[in-house]
Nucleic acid binder design. Structure first.
Ligand SMILES: Nc1ccn([C@H]2C[C@H](O)[C@@H](COP(=O)(O)OP(=O)(O)OP(=O)(O)O)O2)c(=O)n1
Ligand SMILES: Nc1ccn([C@H]2C[C@H](O)[C@@H](COP(=O)(O)OP(=O)(O)OP(=O)(O)O)O2)c(=O)n1
Ligand SMILES: Nc1ccn([C@H]2C[C@H](O)[C@@H](COP(=O)(O)OP(=O)(O)OP(=O)(O)O)O2)c(=O)n1
Ligand SMILES: Nc1ccn([C@H]2C[C@H](O)[C@@H](COP(=O)(O)OP(=O)(O)OP(=O)(O)O)O2)c(=O)n1
Ligand SMILES: [Mg+2]
Ligand SMILES: [Mg+2]
Ligand SMILES: [Mg+2]
Ligand SMILES: [Mg+2]
Ligand SMILES: [Mg+2]
Ligand SMILES: [Mg+2]
Ligand SMILES: [Mg+2]
Ligand SMILES: [Mg+2]
Lengths: 552, 552
DNA sequence: TGGGGTCCT
DNA sequence: AGGACCC
DNA sequence: TGGGGTCCT
DNA sequence: AGGACCC
């Protein structure tokens, strides 16, 4: 893993169980030989290496994942959509779909063409502007803060440490709410794209399960956690109409994994006695922080599942992933279901960025760079930074531009100080243009993506309301700068096409899909589909993006 | 400058003068044509480009620089040294010298051999252990905090924003305390090693200067600043015996530069009317943030002095330094003496590191790595991290090892998670050894420096008193790890040789110097001076470092 | 050419 | 992980 | 294969 | 500045 995800990971180990609770009998699991022996029945014995640290059983952690998040928000914004199969699109891609669509085979991150083949009646909604999703995400987070400390992961996932609330609920819960993972439950990994996604193969059934007389203290606390999860989900729904699925367990690793077993609009608890069994057969990839690279390195030493990982020593694992003993200890502990990392509130975002992608813009020396794209992105970024500044009393110190080219598969980044003058989007655009020149100066390549980002925020220094004021000249004489400037009007059209599907993308689509979009939005007449080589050189298409080259 | 130093620089511009004071008459300077015309008399006219931002004249900034800092501390620790010419050494180098030694030509960063040639009676003190200097530095900072907001720069420099104290001293100062920069004062750059150092050519003379009747408000505030500076220096001396020199001006740039004009144990104020004149003839290198690279880039467009920099537009400067408009604006403003960056307290250190250097250790595959060096460094680092942890309630997340090799002039760095277990210096040493293997694995080179650093601190997570407890085993069976381990005693010898000159270094010295050291410390008998090639292979010397190879 | 540090990329 | 810069 | 983010190196 | 990883 080379230590990506290790911010999280670093907090996992070595946080000893909180002393008071750890002292109580039965609270320490992991490292006991019972665990090492009980976890399978089709392999009678395997020389597992016991975990080097113990599980903290004193916490109750919720993992809340909003159901088909973007699609759900679109339904809330336009209730007519409800009941129909719906996919949210970004350029050529269905990024998610509602559960009606999923029943028809429309998966997440599926191409529009494939989705339409599977479900001809599929309704498409463009979701390239994330504003509304960010708003609903913020509402959800505020709700969850009422139940404990919250750590967000992406826009639709939240870990909630509700241990204190559990301790305060002195009248013990009589029931587990929602599903309780049964032994031997069948699980499957989701798709090739999201191998870390986990799903159960049976629909959730049980509403409540009695807490047995012999239940341990930890189990009773988890039962209280299931009641809290039910409460939290109810508030999300009643206050904002948001449906969520929830996992309840003693740590973040397990809570996230178990929550995926019953979805949508459901919840599942994992009891410690089932933890090691539960995680044993899962692919190592389900561990947060284990991605494609680490997976393949572990495969090289024969570890595809957590069970196999357990059979290796930390040294062997360290050698395989080429990393430190700390990393190896983390992986080995995870393979046992052990994760002592705390729930850490992340505070305001560390990066605010906007991006756009396209089929390819040929940037050559001497050819003017496309001002409208940077103009639109800069305008959008400045809008976001301004509201961030108002909310958090801070300003970014760094502007970063990232480009992806057709030729190279990796991205190039360049950064510079964020324009601090009251220059607004014009100053940002000029700085971004300098960065773009640097980026493409090296190799005249076809740019397929541009991202601009504000980061490295300094506190207590709100931007002087930048708005769209013209940049104050630093030098007295008329500027010798002859960049590809257009009038300032461009900056007054923030997010011009956002919410509307890109013309170029549309033209590359099958005709039926084009027609469907055309019914919803008025668009210029579509010429013949340009070949990619002709399009790249800016010589044929009259579309939004390539037109910048025709214009000079 | 590629934006190094720009954390500072970013705060310089665009901080508009504080509204209340800026509104008062006479407070805004810079950008006025009088400034652009008044600054020279041997060049009757030059087409200066006016600065694009205005000087904030509302502040009073002190720059305090402790005199011959390490040497001064050594004198305080051992008063017998006082009155004699003294140099503080690190390996082959005199890192600083007291003013008695400087009068004999012993400069800062001069080789011991050269220093001894210049001053045969020079007393040498090894200053490789910085502990005591850190302690006195902390005392000084605490004193200065009584006079305003403090920003530290290295161990012996402090910016103090005493604007508030000035405003509170309602009874106007009748005198400027210390020196007031006279028009036409001759200045010279210090040495080739420290081109940014500035010195006056005449000793300070005046004790006080009457504040004239026609003095402006800003000048009266600066006069108050000189009184505060005198107070601060008096407290430093009375409480801790520390002598300092101080510059007083309206910004950090000017305060630092003017403070160097009269040293030691003195102070100088720069009035705004003299600012542009003062800085005009100085080499661009004096600007903090302009180092060797930026200097040579600016020289390429004909800018060696600030005066020449002023004649360029920001665009021209930006092109030359290959950087953003923000950088260029910063440089151009500095060339006019304008610097609106605030004094920013930096908080606890972001990195804690220890290092050692040597003439060359050949690391080859199969040859055991030198445990004693890493052992000693790890022990020292852990001691420092432990006390940091106690003081700041935090712990490092990252361990970094840096090596310099004889072959390549640049350094290589590798990092990994900081061992978080209560493994103490043993765990740190193991992790460092892994990093060292990575570093030298690439090319079997002669290592001439090793640095290990703790960084990326997380708050609220003190290390469980690591001390020297043996590392708790993570894996049950005896460890298959066969690193070059020695007993734990090594860890009980923190900083074994610190404060004592290195044996190897000593042997490379002229005999008289060797004898001088030998008189102070007991050392093993010195064999013939080894040739550098023989020494590098670990085949000849029996010294501290190469002996690790002989031993296996 | 010591033995530290800061921040940017 | 490397670089430029600072004391 | 979108349009975002986190942290490490 | 690039990379691995996450939604
Ligand atoms: N590679 C990805 C993964 C996710 N998302 C967005 C779209 C999703 O709506 C949202 C949440 O991601 P999930 O994986 O939780 O997917 P959903 O919430 O859409 O579906 P589910 O009901 O399976 O959670 O994040 C994205 O844009 N790109
Ligand atoms: N800041 C901008 C400017 C333009 N465009 C896109 C939208 C236009 O459809 C297309 C063509 O550029 P034009 O400048 O010709 O666009 P208009 O004709 O709509 O605007 P104007 O009349 O101001 O030139 O570029 C954009 O996305 N963002
Ligand atoms: N390249 C450097 C520069 C400085 N120092 C240390 C030794 C100095 O004593 C201390 C302070 O640096 P100064 O440049 O302020 O030098 P001095 O304080 O020694 O002398 P001066 O009286 O000129 O300030 O930092 C160092 O180790 N290496
Ligand atoms: N952690 C260590 C161990 C040793 N050394 C140095 C000091 C010794 O002078 C030299 C030789 O190594 P030895 O192990 O032979 O040192 P000693 O003989 O002093 O210690 P011991 O008797 O424990 O081996 O290495 C060191 O700097 N740091
Ligand atoms: Mg999700
Ligand atoms: Mg979801
Ligand atoms: Mg994973
Ligand atoms: Mg100094
Ligand atoms: Mg000094
Ligand atoms: Mg400089
Ligand atoms: Mg670094
Ligand atoms: Mg980055």
């Amino acid at each position: 893993m080379t230590s990506a995800e290790s911010a999280d990971f670093r907090r996992r180990q070595h946080a000893e169980p909180s002393p008071a609770l750890a002292a109580a009998e039965g609270l320490l699991l992991g490292g006991s030989s019972s665990l090492a022996a009980c976890c399978d029945d089709d392999a009678s014995f395997f020389p597992s290496v016991e975990p080097s640290c113990t599980q903290d059983l004193s916490r109750v952690i919720l993992h809340v994942d909003l159901d088909c998040f973007y699609a759900q928000v679109e339904e809330l914004l336009d209730p007519k959509l409800k009941g129909q199969p719906l996919a949210v699109t970004q350029k050529y891609l269905c990024v998610t779909s509602n559960y009606e669509a999923r029943a028809l085979g429309v998966g997440k991150l599926m191409s529009i063409v494939e989705a339409k083949r599977k479900a001809p009646g599929l309704v498409l909604r463009c979701g390239e502007d994330l504003t509304r999703y960010r708003e609903f995400s913020a509402k959800a987070e505020k709700v969850l803060r009422g139940f404990g400390t919250v750590e967000r992961l992406g826009m639709d996932e939240f870990y909630v440490d509700c241990s204190r609330l559990v301790s305060n609920r002195t009248e013990g819960e009589a029931y587990f709410h929602g599903n309780v993972l049964e032994p031997g439950a069948e699980l499957r990994a989701d798709t090739a794209y999201r191998p870390q996604d986990l799903r159960g193969t049976k629909a959730g059934a049980e509403e409540t399960t009695l807490v047995g007389e012999g239940a341990s203290d930890v189990e009773r606390r988890l039962a209280a956690g299931t009641a809290i999860a039910a409460d939290a989900r109810r508030v999300l729904r009643d206050a904002h109409g948001l449906r969520a699925s929830c996992g309840i367990a003693v740590n973040k690793l397990l809570a996230k994994l178990i929550g995926g077993v019953h979805k949508p609009d459901d919840q599942t608890v994992l009891l410690p006695a089932r933890s090691a069994d539960f995680i044993a057969r899962l692919p190592v990839r389900v561990i947060k922080g284990v991605g494609a690279k680490t997976e393949s390195r572990l495969r090289a030493i024969g570890c595809e599942t957590c069970l196999e990982l357990r059979m290796r020593t930390e040294r062997e694992i360290a050698r395989a992933v080429g990393d430190s003993a700390e990393m190896a200890a983390f992986l080995h502990a995870c393979a046992w279901g052990i994760d002592n990392s705390p729930v850490v509130p992340k505070g305001p975002p560390k990066v605010v960025s906007v991006e756009d992608s396209f089929k390819g813009i040929a940037l050559e020396k001497g050819v003017p760079l496309p001002p409208a794209i940077l103009g639109r992105l800069s305008s959008h970024l400045v809008t976001r930074v301004d509201s961030d500044s108002a909310e958090h009393k801070r300003r970014p110190r760094t502007l970063t531009l990232t480009v992806r080219t057709r030729e190279e598969r990796s991205k190039r980044r360049f950064s510079s100080p964020y324009p601090s003058q009251a220059g607004g989007c014009i100053a940002v655009e000029e700085a971004a243009l300098d960065l773009l020149r640097k980026a493409v100066g090296r190799s005249a390549a076809e740019v397929t993506l541009i991202n601009i980002a504000a980061s490295n925020f300094e506190r207590g220094a709100p931007l002087a309301a930048s708005g769209f004021e013209p940049r104050r000249r630093r030098t007295a004489p008329p500027s010798p700068f002859k960049s590809a400037r257009r009038d300032q009007e461009a900056c007054k059209r923030p997010r011009a096409e956002i919410g509307v599907i890109d013309e170029e993308v549309l033209r590359a689509m099958p005709l039926e899909i084009q027609e469907e979009y055309s019914r919803a939005f008025t668009l210029p007449a579509a010429p013949k589909k340009p070949t990619s080589s002709a399009r790249g050189r800016g010589k044929s298409a009259t579309g939004t993006i390539t037109s910048f080259f025709a214009s000079k």
